[in-house]
Simulated scan of single mutants.
Amino acid sequence: MSETNTTNESTPQRGLNFNALKTHVLEHKIFVALLCTRILTIIFALGYIFPIFGTSYNAYYKALLSNAATSALRLHQRLGRVQFTSAFFRELVREDSCHYLFYSLIFLYVAPITLVLLPITLFAILHAASYSLTLLDVLGQNAWWGARLLISIVEFQSRNILRLAAFTEIMLMPMTIILIFMGKAGLLTPFIYYHFLVQRYSSRRNPYTRNMFHELRVLLEAGAAKPSMPGILKQILLRVVSISCKLAPPQVAQQ
């Protein structure tokens, strides 16, 4: 009987380890808070498209606010306390989280546009999936294999997700100009968004926007070089490339 008890005690439990999960949550409160705000971003974005609970209008702005909360938490995590120094400000504006905090603030004062929610939703899905896998590992190696499968699909497509987010960021630039003529955005919106796009282009940690600009330039130049391309369209394409190159910030060598 004693041998049986000893064997049972020495055998690791295969159930879900909720005690380990509780300990992990208490030790990583900001990470868990980030997961919650990202999940809220996804829920509100879906609520905008499928307004089952509440109105799509409210869901749209709640998605932007939850993304702003995510960005603010991430900035606090990376930079700590706010310091009123030029060095802190320079570091602040170079952070990707600052860019998307700025992004949310820009579109809080613009009429709802479905395309605006795409980048923040994609980033929320990508980062939420990554941290959810960490929580599943804490629960146990065999916990919720179905969720692990979905997470693995997201991680496998991470490069395409980041490229799509970068492409959307770029396409929103002409969209903001169109919105002025539609009466859905202010005159300053394109200029403010341009500064956001400049920061994304210069990002240290995420080169996808910069790479996407290069891919689009190659694509447009190749299209303009086709013999079958009408002269007017060729001039338009080359003009778009020329203007984009002039507006692009100078490249700074990475340290």
Rank of each mutant, 00 (worst) to 15 (best):
Q254L: 10
P250F: 05
S66T: 14
S152P: 07
L46T: 10
Y100H: 11
N58Q: 13
L73Q: 04
A129R: 00
T55I: 03
L172F: 03
T11W: 13
K22C: 13
S130Q: 12
R81H: 11
M173T: 02
T121L: 00
R204K: 11
E155D: 10
C36G: 10
Y109T: 12
G47P: 00
Q141V: 12
E95P: 04
Q157K: 11
S203N: 02
T37L: 04
L46Q: 06
Y61F: 15
A222S: 15
L220D: 02
N160C: 08
E3V: 13
F18K: 09
L237N: 06
R90W: 08
L73H: 01
V154H: 03
T114Y: 01
L46V: 15
L118R: 02
P230A: 01
F88D: 02
R210H: 09
A72H: 00
W145I: 13
F44N: 03
G140I: 10
L79P: 04
Q254N: 12
L26V: 06
N17K: 11
R163G: 03
G140Q: 03
F102Q: 08
I30H: 08
G223Q: 10
R74Q: 12
A224T: 07
D96T: 11
N206I: 10
F181M: 07
I125Y: 03
E95A: 02
Y194T: 07
S203Q: 04
G15A: 12
N211I: 05
A129P: 02
T209R: 00
C36Q: 09
V154A: 01
Q141I: 14
A253F: 09
I177G: 03
K246C: 02
F89N: 06
T11H: 11
